[in-house]
Design a protein around this nucleic acid. Sequence first.
DNA 1: AATTGAGATCTGTGATCACAAAATTATAAT
DNA 2: ATTATAATTTTGTGATCACAGATCTCAATT
Lengths: 225, 225
Amino acid sequence: MPSNAFSKIAPRQSVLPVNEWVYDTLCQLILHGEFVPGVTLTLRGIAESLDVSPMPVRESVTRLIAEGALEVSNKRRITVSQMTQKKFDELALARLSLEPALSALALPLIDAERLKLLVDVDSKLDVAISTGNIGNYIKYNCQFHFGIYEASPSPVLLPIIKSLWLRFSPFYRIVAGRAGTQTLDDYHESAIDAIKAKDPDALAKAIHKDIQEGMEMLNDSIGKQ
Amino acid sequence: MPSNAFSKIAPRQSVLPVNEWVYDTLCQLILHGEFVPGVTLTLRGIAESLDVSPMPVRESVTRLIAEGALEVSNKRRITVSQMTQKKFDELALARLSLEPALSALALPLIDAERLKLLVDVDSKLDVAISTGNIGNYIKYNCQFHFGIYEASPSPVLLPIIKSLWLRFSPFYRIVAGRAGTQTLDDYHESAIDAIKAKDPDALAKAIHKDIQEGMEMLNDSIGKQ
DNA sequence: AATTGAGATCTGTGATCACAAAATTATAAT
DNA sequence: ATTATAATTTTGTGATCACAGATCTCAATT
């Protein structure tokens, strides 16, 4: 029997093509930190866990490898990407270069409804911090950032930024899980203020600071995974 | 009979896995401007042109779609990505943010041999400009830039930058082909000078200017493809 | 000449099989 | 008990088939 990658996945209901549903599901699992860096996955194992045939899994995994979320090891074994100092530095550089810029582009497209959503997500994030719920912290932090970015239907920047998140999220989860939420802070307030003030530069700066603080916190833990 | 995507491809000799050979081949064709934006491709057509089975083509095309080089249209038809103003602006932003930075990172790793190669490629590029050989211009311009970037084995920045090039290269070829080489300039000299002087900031600035000039030249042609 | 529509063909997606290389387990030898 | 070796299973890759939806062909009709 093929090794099980995970279990207890919500069954497919949507009318999306199977491979897209598989891809989205795997993305969510990765972004929310459900995959441990270094763990090896198998096509048949994922297929069984998701109750689909190996074929659409193969296509999704190929995509995720292209996006750097998964890696194919030495002798063709699929693994969840591990963090290295070099990768980390480049991820930080790319995030700091692109995410503040996209925030500024997206700001004019954030309407009242989306702002409300962001405020709501941020309050849930505060709850997650104070109650020590790492899983929710990861999830709501992701939702907050992409809640801003996705206001702009960016055909280039958004997929690239998503690929950056796919790369560091597994590592993020491990580190945050070990350190606990007491080391985490919420730098999103100034971002919300900037959105309310409709000030793109201020938003870019707030996101920049948020990323920098977060990545600095992570930086000490590289190699100690 | 399936439609032929192209013809006259060098047969496979290498010992790479078939899918990687197919991927590399398609990348080169795209980067060198052999694919016309908007053209639809078919898995079976590519497979026949490359004399391989459809399976490895499928995998390669999936990768290229994930990287934005190809697109799957409205009703699942594979096409070479077309340029839009929004895409173009984001590509320019991303290139200007990442490529100068990677240049600076790579500079300390450029040895004498690589410098010699860069000088050589640049002189070939000058010949291509003066003789009006667009194809060679595209090729050597690509080789010059990646000749710098690849000095640093960057696990994150390099693949992302490659994906940026895959997205604009088909468009680049069309525009350059219509305008002719008389509108093209060679801004690589100051980059070479900066490398010789081992001055990362100067190299970053030179690459920045090179990208800016090139993208500005392209900007007027959007939508007139 | 332009339009329509039925039949044929092509295309992406998913399923299944085959296979060699790798990994795991079982067995034997010291 | 530990190591060496043989047998078995698992895994990614490639090939082939099935199929529904899209596309194309081309004659019939207006």
